[in-house]
Computed example of a mutant assay.
Amino acid sequence: MADGRIRALVEAIHATPTQAVLYLSGGASQALGYLMSIPGASNTVLEAIVPYSRTSMIQLLSKIPTQFVSKQTAEDMALLAYNRALKLSKPGLSVVGVGFTGSLASTRPKQGDHRFYFSTRTSDRLWVSSVTLSKGLRTREQEDKVSSHFLLKAIADACKVSATFHPDVNETEVPDECEKLFDEDEELQQLLNGEICMKVYPFSGHAPNSERKIILSGSFNPLHDGHLKLLEVATRISEGVPCFEISAINADKPPLTVPQIKERVEQFERADRNYL
């Protein structure tokens, strides 16, 4: 059972308009338990996967990682989770991808460190941290609890929620943190590079009341009344959130440049229309 501080933090996370996909391996299982057992989980958790076996992790990453427990693997997991969250989330809501990989106490003594890496990815931020625990100080369950507390704090931070507790660690178990911030141009370049699957511009200014999207794709060069009326008619026929999708990469045409994408997006902003 979660104590009062953990419960309050998870309730605050559930109260935010941020939805998450979590990929966890080798620890932090109690964090998922906290998120799922405290009411409001459906507001936050879109999907949670535990790629625990070697084969499962390889299939998730679509590659054999240099190290299964590493900073790079945590970042890769968070990015995959972020892209998955973009596809599963309600239109216009912010999303976070969460990755965790750890090597904690087991049934047999380990030669290496007891350590874990965890990462969160949002539209404008990649954050990663690592913690090396003192060997022999805790049981596996206790190490899992510590890693779960660190992960919950990271999720809260990504949801812009202030955590009022600190994980119970000693002075040598200091987290090593790294942060990368992205501006709009960098995010669009990531889109063109295939690192992220989409960038969402929610111009409507109100929360969607449907998970279903009605999408009109095109180059929109330029946006005209025919496009607007076509999507308007579609929303009369079928219920859903109306969205436009600019095809940044087209099989029959050269990819758009970042300035071209921004120029076309501005058309929808002036028209006060949703864009996906």
Rank of each mutant, 00 (worst) to 15 (best):
Q19L: 10
Q19G: 09
Q19S: 13
A20R: 04
A20M: 07
L22N: 01
G26K: 12
G26Q: 09
G26H: 08
G26I: 14
G27V: 11
S29H: 11
L32D: 13
G33Y: 14
L35D: 01
M36V: 06
S37D: 09
A41H: 03
V45A: 08
V50S: 06
P51V: 14
P51M: 12
Y52V: 09
Y52E: 06
T55R: 08
S56C: 11
S56R: 09
S56K: 09
S56T: 11
M57C: 11
I58T: 14
Q59S: 12
Q59E: 15
Q59C: 10
L60F: 01
L61S: 03
L61N: 02
P65A: 01
T66L: 12
F68L: 11
F68V: 10
S70G: 04
K71C: 11
K71T: 08
A74K: 09
M77L: 03
A78P: 12
L79P: 02
L79K: 11
L80S: 02
L80Q: 05
N83G: 15
R84G: 05
R84E: 07
A85V: 15
K87G: 05
K87Y: 04
L88E: 00
P91H: 02
G92Q: 06
G92R: 08
L93C: 11
S94Q: 15
V95D: 01
V95H: 03
G97F: 03
T101H: 02
T101R: 05
G102L: 09
G102M: 06
G102S: 07
G102T: 06
S103V: 00
L104F: 00
L104R: 00
A105M: 08
S106M: 07
T107K: 02
Q111Y: 06
G112N: 05
F116M: 04
F116I: 03
F116G: 00
Y117C: 14
F118C: 12
R121A: 07
R121N: 03
T122D: 12
S123M: 14
D124L: 09
W127S: 15
W127F: 14
W127D: 10
V131S: 03
L133C: 09
S134R: 15
S134T: 15
L137F: 03
